[in-house]
Design a protein around this nucleic acid. Structure first.
Length: 357
RNA sequence: CCUCCCAUAGCUCAUUGGUAGAGCAGGCGGUUGUAGCCCGCUGUGGCCCAGUUCGAUUCUGGGUGGGGGGACCA
């Protein structure tokens, strides 16, 4: 596969690449660079986990990239997820692995790494301290938004370690490409700055879009606050569609979702089409009553977008189309967790952890 | 170790020695061929233990949890 084809595969999902030129150079010099995405194990899998990030990963693999899936157990611990209980966090991590498998990720072709396993040694902590020395307290505090906590929330000393540790992971795992969400760009930019200062190899970052929650855009003072307030979050069930949602739940949730007529921007339904549905299927047919124009087929997102903003597709029809397509994508995963004994046990256990919290 | 402050609804907070309210969030309904906006309706609550009192969410003591300040040189 030539370099431009690889770039194309990445641009298919990337909202930001820092920088494209560096990425091109990387591919020229190394046909199989290393990338990673990191996850705090907690909660049950939402669609951006099972469908969006999983399909990003598939593109990366197609481009010949060696991918590391990083289960950030100690990070979840610092961030007080699942009551800050390591046993629960590990359980949630095992469950995540099961979701990846169910989503068609060949877990033999990716490397799954637990944070605890790379943190076990002075080399890791030596890097952490060198990195920490290069970061001002002010900037570090600003970077704590990567933990998904709102600015102004009380921070513990432990949480202050988080950014330096996340940056350490990048260098310690010898990552060429950080492939995380836009909400993680502060950590990745920190890594690039620190690399310059310490004369370490500078990672390239590829950030994917952060999916809007069901209630749509929640405008705040800054773009970053807006992003954090608007995102689909697995810890906020009313914002979120899960890989386990039944057809009925899906229908109910989508029907309640914010969806302004003829408007693409800030419209979660349009986002689900763009970032999930058309990334996974080739064409989308919407069943529509005859009096509103009858069934209609879209071969790509652009066709859908144009029809929608022209007012030729009503929100209600868009919604019913999205329900049907998402159901097709979620169903095999949901059923895997119903049929497979081990998977079911893990899912039930994690679900229980969340309810009892 | 010392000291001060705080603990009430999912969240932010108010009030009262006589069985508690607001805003936001949530739920329901109306209006829209969706949602939102708008309008109407609506649920849930006093950290724990002991004492004073006819009666304690309120006062007192203790506990627990959270936060601030101090604790050598000064």
């Amino acid at each position: 596969m030539d370099v431009e084809e690889k770039i194309r595969l990445i641009k298919e999902f990337a909202e930001e690449i820092v920088t494209e030129e560096e990425l091109r150079e990387l591919f020229k010099n190394n046909p199989h660079p290393v990338a990673y995405d990191g996850f705090e194990p907690s909660g049950i899998a939402p669609i951006h986990f099972g469908l969006l990030r999983a399909s990003n990963l598939k593109n990366m693999l197609k481009a010949g990239i060696k991918f590391k899936l990083f289960l950030a157990d100690y990070f979840a611990f610092i961030n007080n997820k699942l009551g800050g209980d390591m046993k629960n966090i590990r359980l949630a991590g095992e469950y995540f692995i099961e979701v990846w498998k169910a989503c068609g990720i060949d877990t033999d072709k990716v490397e799954i790494i637990w944070a605890k396993d790379i943190m076990d040694g002075i080399d890791y902590w030596d890097k952490t301290l060198r990195i920490a020395k290069e970061i001002s307290l002010e900037r570090n505090i600003r970077a704590t938004t990567i933990m998904g906590r709102k600015q102004g929330e009380k921070l513990s000393m432990g949480q202050l370690f988080y950014p330096s540790m996340q940056v350490t992971d990048i260098f310690h795992m010898k990552i060429d490409i950080c492939q995380l969400g836009m909400d993680q760009r502060r950590a990745n930019m920190l890594a690039r700055d620190v690399a310059n200062k310490l004369k370490w190899k500078k990672p390239i970052t590829v950030h994917h879009h952060i999916l809007l929650g069901l209630q749509g855009l929640q405008k705040k003072e800054t773009d970053e606050e807006t992003l954090l307030a608007s995102k689909m979050s697995k810890s906020d069930p009313k914002s979120c569609i899960y890989m386990h949602d039944t057809y009925g739940e899906l229908k109910k949730k989508i029907n309640k979702a914010f969806c302004p007529e003829r408007q693409e921007e800030g419209n979660p339904l349009m986002e689900y089409c763009k970032y999930i549905i058309f990334r996974n299927i080739k064409s989308m047919t919407i069943n529509r009553p005859e009096k509103f124009g009858g069934n209609i087929e879209f071969k790509n997102y652009e066709e859908l977008r144009k029809t929608y903003v022209d007012g030729k597709l009503h929100p209600m029809d868009l919604k019913s189309g999205v329900v049907e397509e998402l159901e097709k994508l979620i169903k095999p995963v949901r059923e895997h967790f119903e049929k497979d004994k081990k998977a079911k046990k893990l899912y039930e256990a994690v679900k229980k952890l969340i309810i009892t919290r």
